[in-house]
Amino acid sequence: MSQINLDCRRQNCPVPLVEVRKALRKAAAGDVIEVVGTHPASKKEIPMAVEATGDEVVEVKDTGSEWTIRIRKR
């Protein structure tokens, strides 16, 4: 089980969403993907997408200027 880090800071719609999906497709079950970004809508939409694909949102952190989402592939 490994951790994959994605830096999507300053990336715009729909790049953070697409990058998370690409990473999830490549990841093995149990792998954790940690994505950092600044695009406001993606903070809401990434958990929606993760739920739709049946994976798990482990944590959503928001420091104000950027957010971090941890996802576990099922």
Binding site: C13, P14, L17, R21
Partner: peptide, 11 residues
């Protein structure tokens, strides 16, 4: 393409 890629990303 944004809508299509959004759809793919949402599973």
């Amino acid at each position: 393409f944004i809508i299509a890629n959004g759809s793919l990303s949402m599973g």
